[in-house]
């Protein structure tokens, strides 16, 4: 990741940046239910760290994982399309191999989810651009836990460089 105090660097002719701080903050501030594709029930996996953290921070986490029945006390679904319609998904967070991403994005578009988010190391720019062209917000190669921690102050407690500079009282 570049220093957070430098402007986003993934803006290309293909579309808007995929690490735009405004998009990241908008997603984190407006979402309340997050579908996590590839959320493991193994407590030491990175996906479980992120899911557990987001749940602690007040989000509802819907696991999408065909190999388990439930994670973090929530029923798991085999894919995004199988999540019941009465659960409104605000963002689909993806912990899968880059080549497994396109059908997940297609499901998010079909379901009219407003945002897709690909975790650290999950880089499929074609799929991200497809989401943007369909009108979704898209974030790629970023960790949702770290980005939440950057703006909520949590990351700061661990000595990390959040890039946040302000003389106003914290209000998050």
């Amino acid at each position: 990741m570049p220093s957070p105090s430098t402007p986003p660097d993934t803006a290309t002719e293909a579309g808007p940046p995929l690490d735009d701080p405004h998009v990241i903050q908008r997603i984190l501030r407006t979402a309340s239910t997050i579908a996590i594709v590839g959320l493991s029930n193994k407590t030491q996996r990175a996906s479980h760290f992120v899911g557990s953290y987001l749940q602690d921070e007040g989000y509802r986490v819907i696991p999408v994982n065909p190999t388990v029945d439930a994670v973090l006390g929530e029923t798991a679904y085999p894919d995004v399309a199988s999540i019941p319609d009465d659960i409104t998904i605000d963002v689909v967070d993806i912990f899968r191999r880059p080549e497994a991403v396109p059908p997940i994005v297609a499901e998010a578009i079909a379901r009219e989810v407003p945002a897709v988010w690909m975790q650290f190391g999950v880089t499929n720019e074609d799929a991200a651009r497809q989401a943007q062209r369909a009108g979704l917000d898209a974030v790629m190669d970023r960790c949702m836990k770290i980005e939440h921690g950057r703006y909520s102050g949590g990351l700061h407690w661990m000595g990390m460089n959040t890039g946040v500079i302000s003389a106003k009282r914290q209000a998050w």
Partner: peptide
């Protein structure tokens, strides 16, 4: 911290992390 009423929809303005602040400011 796990308080759905106050989080995750804060009302504060966005942090200006896309401005590159200078060394002295930081």
């Amino acid at each position: 911290m796990p308080d759905p009423s106050s989080s995750p929809t804060p009302s504060a303005p966005e942090a200006a992390v896309d401005h590159a602040f200078g060394f002295e400011t930081r």
